[in-house]
């Protein structure tokens, strides 16, 4: 019975994905894509990966969708190239080959499946964390997570670099060109405080139950964006020292803790014994702040000619 439901879910995702790839109106495609994201969130729950489900819905569907909607609104559909029928057939063949090869691999994966779960179980007590995913992200593979925060920072620098040099201290354009309506204002006033609370809870609970810095940061970013869309708060200028420090806080606090680990625990990104959880939570606070600010700024885009 549950397999039937799973199959329906899978078919829905596939149908929405085909709609995304089919072309036509940009808005419709983006909305279909956001639908794919939400359904994928459900699938992640079915795969017992609640942390991923939260990330997929908040980042993969929500904030990514917001960025894509802007693209659909801003860029009129330009047919940059016309591709012939033969090329379509070739691409279709390539797609079929990819599907067939992957399907064979998925069906032939070894049984019992190799897994690092036992290693994680053995090592997790040393970290004092209850959520194994947070343990992998912040302890065992801390280097990846550190670099991921750097990736966000570099992407932001890349987005800002699209503006002329003289705009480097100005503010991005607002997301919502029309004056705010009463409904949006009301929604923002009620939802932003609730959402902020949810975001902080997600990050705080992430040490022991599903959630964490990325999910919490994404929710906080969404709330900040909503406040800006409703006109409750202005779009900030990117030159402010506070804003820039908030962007840098996560990656460089993490890096600093990593270097401190050399002296206190004997290895880069090792945590001093007995203080693991305290230090990890402190790093997560910094990361959450940076992620929230960076995600929001990435959505807002490059600074425009307007002074804040």
């Amino acid at each position: 019975m549950s397999l039937l439901l799973d199959a329906i879910l899978a078919l829905l995702v596939l149908a929405a994905a085909v709609r995304v790839a089919a072309g036509g109106d940009g808005f419709a495609r983006v909305v279909a894509f956001m639908g794919v994201g939400l359904l994928l969130g459900l699938i992640w729950v079915r795969l017992a990966a609640v942390d991923v489900a939260l990330t997929e819905v908040a980042v993969g569907s929500g904030i990514t969708g917001l960025v894509l909607l802007q693209a659909a609104a801003d860029a009129p559909l330009t047919r940059e190239r016309e591709v012939g029928l033969l090329y379509h057939l070739c691409a279709g063949m390539v797609g079929l080959v990819v599907f067939a090869a992957l399907a064979v691999v998925v069906l032939l994966l070894p049984d019992p499946a190799p897994s690092l779960a036992p290693d994680v179980v053995r090592a997790l007590p040393a970290t004092d964390l209850g959520n194994p995913v947070t343990g992998v992200l912040l302890v065992f593979r801390a280097l990846d997570t550190l670099l991921e925060t750097m990736v966000l920072l570099v992407a932001l620098i890349g987005v800002w670099s699209l503006s002329p040099d003289r705009h480097w201290r100005r503010a991005p354009a607002p997301l919502w060109p029309a004056p705010p309506s009463g409904a949006l204002d009301f929604l923002a006033r009620v939802l932003v405080p609730i959402g902020a609370l949810v975001g902080i809870y997600m990050f705080w609970a992430g040490a022991d139950v599903p959630g964490g810095a990325f999910q919490g940061g994404a929710v906080l970013a969404a709330m900040a964006l909503m406040a800006m869309m409703a006109g409750l708060s202005p779009v900030p200028a990117i030159g402010g020292a506070g804003l820039r420090l908030a962007v840098l806080a996560g990656p460089f606090a993490f890096l600093g803790v990593g270097i401190a680990g050399w002296f206190l625990a004997g290895a880069f990104l090792d945590y001093p014994e007995g203080f693991e959880k305290t230090v990890i939570i402190a790093v997560e606070v910094a990361i959450t702040v940076s992620i929230a600010v960076t995600l929001a700024l990435l959505v807002l885009g490059p600074p425009m000619g307007r002074k804040a």
Binding site: V151, L162, S163
Partner: peptide
């Protein structure tokens, strides 16, 4: 292999904007 993936993405995101610095 996964750290290499993150490294490659970091490289991409740093290299691409270099192409259009003059806008």
């Amino acid at each position: 292999l996964f750290t290499l993936y993150v490294a490659l993405e970091l490289l991409t995101f740093a290299a691409v904007p270099l192409v259009c610095l003059e806008g």
